[in-house]
């Protein structure tokens, strides 16, 4: 009888640890916003399904992506995010540009930055690629560490 109790408690502790570890990993999960078709050149390309983590999936919506060109060859994008909750949302985001061949462009956009979105507010994240042969992007979003 005593043996069974020990095994049960060990099993429960082990399970709790697994849940705790999974929970911690999920809390800082990175969601990626991109175009469904990377070669889509329309002004409002279709958004690829985003899987946010850390509770962002319940509060944050990608309204739309707008894209255009600056000086005829530099890709300009704007991603509209909406906070659908009644609480302030703090995120960090990073933009990655991909060239026509799918290679990552190494420029100053490769830095995480903080962003706060008020309840019910829409925020635009806008940028311009600094390389002419860029056709796609990936906007990475993660819950902020210090809310």
């Amino acid at each position: 009888m005593k043996k069974i109790t020990y095994s049960k408690s060990f099993f429960l502790s082990f399970l709790s640890l697994i849940f705790l570890l999974v929970g911690c990993a999920e809390k800082r999960k990175v969601g990626t916003i991109s175009k469904k078709n990377p070669q889509d050149q329309t002004s409002h390309p279709e958004v690829k399904k985003v899987e946010f983590g850390g509770g962002l999936e319940k509060v944050l919506d990608v309204v739309e992506i707008t894209q255009g060109k600056v000086d005829g060859d530099l890709l300009r994008i704007q991603v509209e995010l909406k906070n659908n909750s009644s609480k302030q949302v703090n995120i960090t985001h990073k933009l990655e540009w991909l060239d026509n061949e799918g290679f990552l462009v190494k420029d100053t956009s490769l830095g995480w930055r903080a962003q706060m979105i008020r309840p019910g507010e829409s925020k635009m994240i806008e940028s311009i690629s600094t390389r002419p042969k860029v056709s796609a992007f990936r906007l990475k979003i993660q819950p902020a560490k210090n809310p």
Partner: peptide, 13 residues
């Protein structure tokens, strides 16, 4: 990094 990027984007725009 953020300041450099924002200034370049603003200048290009």
């Amino acid at each position: 990094i953020r300041a450099a990027n924002q200034l370049v984007v603003d200048l290009l725009a």
